[in-house]
Amino acid sequence: MSRRPDPVQVVKQRRDEALRALVDGVPYIRFLGIHFDRRGDELTGILPYDDMLIGNPTLPALHGGVTAAFLEVTSVITLRWATQWDAVEAGEDVATDRMPKTIDFTVDYLRSGLPRDAYARARITRSGRRYASVHVEGWQDNRQRPFAQATGHFVMPQHG
């Protein structure tokens, strides 16, 4: 006989707390104002517009470095979130886990970043014991018209 599943509120609270612990602990994510929207295990990074994110005041346009940083943060958090998912579901403490380390990150700037909120979603294209590859897309008003995309390679933290 299988165990009765936890009530939906308990499950949601456990997942949201794990996500908050993961994101809130990183000063740079707070500095940029990035937060994450969760649907089941799917994460969407949200970068609310702020004047200090501008790189070209005459257009105006988001700084290319901000775009790169937003896509990289979304990639790293998505990767860590995916690798700790089973442990979170099992109710284990994942607070001591280390962050994946970026090996390289390549950003493709498709159009200039507008002075408004940006969103990003990352897809793990390969997740091995030691290395992982991630593809990430960022968009603003229109999901079908990404303003940037990137691929990155990461070294996964080794346990024990």
Partner: peptide, 16 residues
Amino acid sequence: IGDPKTGVIAGGAVSA
């Protein structure tokens, strides 16, 4: 800081 356990600057800041 990108990794609070080490105090290392975030890759994103280096990108900027």
